Simulated assay, not measured.
Amino acid sequence: MRVAFSECTPNYETHLAPYQVLGFLDDDETPATAFGHGMLPSNRELTRFYLARSVRVDLGKYTEGKRERYVRKQCASLSRDFVPRGQLEHLDDWVDLSVRYMNESPRWASQRKRLFEAEDVMARLNVPMTTHLLTLTDTSNGAPVALAMLYVEPPVAYYARAFYDIKYRNLSIGSYLMSSAVNEMQGHGLSHIYLGTCYYEGARYKTRFAGMEFFDGLGWSDDRERLRLLLSQQDDLHDQHLFDHPSYLAAGPPPRSEDATTRLVDLSNWTEER
C-alpha cells in the first residue's frame, strides 16, 4: 500500500503535529489488504482508506456468548436473509425503512442537514462498499425490521452501515443485527469481520464478541484492558501523543523494533506520478 499523511489540527505550544494516515491500494491489492493493516474505507468507492482504532472479530475464535443468546431469543420472531446487493427483493420497502431511520435516529443527527430521501439511501447502496445485504423481517406480518450493508471479499467482510425500525429498539435490534452478521460471516467460512471503530464508551458493544481484536497503532490486540485504558484516558490526550502518556507507558512500552507496522520508503516516484 501507498501511505500518505494528511495534516490535522496541530498544537504548536506542545509540539503536537498530528496527521491522519491515509492508505491507497497498489494495483495488485484489494480492500482486504487495507482492512488487514487496520484501515477502514474513507470513501464509498474504496479508493482511499484511513488508519483508525479498527475493531474486528477473528471468526476462528468466535463463539456465541450469553448476551448474544439472550438477544437472539428476544428476536426469535425475526427471520434472517443474506443476499448479494442486486438480489434484494421489495427494494422500496427496505429503502423506506432506511430513510426513516436516517431521519429519526440520533446517530444520524450530525449528518442531518436536511431530511434524507430515497436517493440518499441509494447513494450508499449502489456503491463498491456495499456488496451484500443482511436483512431481518418480522415473520408475524412480513414487515422489514433491519438492514445491514456489508462489503464481502472472502476471507473478510466489513459491516459498513445498519438501519432498523426504531419500534424494535426494545428488542436490542441493533445488537442482534450485528451479531447476526458475525454469525453469518462465520457460517460462510470467512476469517474476519470488521465492525468499524471504537473511540467512545457507546461503541464498546462492538467489542463484546469472543475473538474481538482492535488495532492499537502497532498491530492487532485482544487486550481488553488496554482498550479500556484507551477509552478512559483519551480525553486527556489533547496536548500529547499516546506514547507520551504515563498511564499508557505503565501498561506497556512504546514501539519496539519488532512492533513496527510500517517503514517509510522513498515515495518520490509515486508523488511525481500523481
Rank of each mutant, 00 (worst) to 15 (best):
Y62G: 12
Y62C: 09
Y62H: 10
T63G: 13
T63Y: 02
E64R: 14
E64T: 14
G65P: 11
K66D: 12
R67T: 08
R67W: 04
E68F: 09
R69T: 00
V71L: 05
C75W: 01
C75Y: 00
L78D: 10
L78R: 11
S79H: 15
F82K: 11
V83K: 13
V83S: 03
P84L: 06
P84K: 08
R85I: 03
R85T: 07
G86A: 13
G86S: 13
G86Q: 12
Q87P: 00
Q87F: 09
L88N: 05
L88Y: 02
E89T: 15
E89M: 06
H90S: 12
H90I: 02
L91N: 05
L91Y: 04
D93F: 04
W94A: 08
W94C: 02
V95H: 01
D96Y: 03
D96Q: 12
L97S: 09
L97W: 01
L97V: 01
L97Y: 09
S98M: 13
S98E: 06
Y101L: 06
M102C: 11
N103D: 07
R107E: 15
R107H: 15
A109F: 00
Q111I: 05
Q111L: 10
Q111V: 07
R112N: 00
R114V: 00
R114C: 03
R114Y: 00
F116N: 11
F116R: 08
F116V: 02
E117T: 05
M122G: 11
A123V: 08
A123D: 08
R124M: 10
R124F: 03
R124Q: 12
L125N: 10
N126W: 09
N126Q: 10
N126M: 11
P128L: 01
P128D: 00
M129I: 12
T130P: 13
H132M: 03
L133I: 01
L133G: 06
L134W: 04
L134E: 05
T135R: 15
T137Q: 13
T137M: 04
D138C: 07
D138L: 04
T139A: 15
T139E: 12
T139K: 09
G142D: 07
A143M: 04
P144W: 00
A148P: 07
M149N: 10
L150F: 00
V152S: 09
E153Q: 12
E153M: 04
P154M: 02
P154N: 00
P154A: 02
P155H: 00
P155N: 00
V156C: 01
Y158T: 08
A160I: 04
R161Y: 15
R161E: 15
R161C: 14
F163Y: 10
Y164H: 11
Y164D: 02
D165I: 11
I166E: 12
K167V: 04
K167A: 15
S172C: 09
S172D: 03
G174L: 01
Y176C: 15
Y176M: 08
L177N: 13
L177T: 09
L177M: 13
M178R: 11
S179A: 09
S180N: 14
A181C: 12
V182G: 14
V182P: 06
N183C: 12
E184L: 08
E184F: 06
E184D: 07
M185R: 03
L190W: 04
S191W: 01
H192R: 07
I193T: 01
L195H: 06
L195Q: 05
T197H: 07
T197Q: 08
G202T: 07
R204E: 10
R204S: 11
R204K: 15
Y205I: 01
Y205D: 01
Y205S: 05
R208C: 13
R208V: 15
R208P: 11
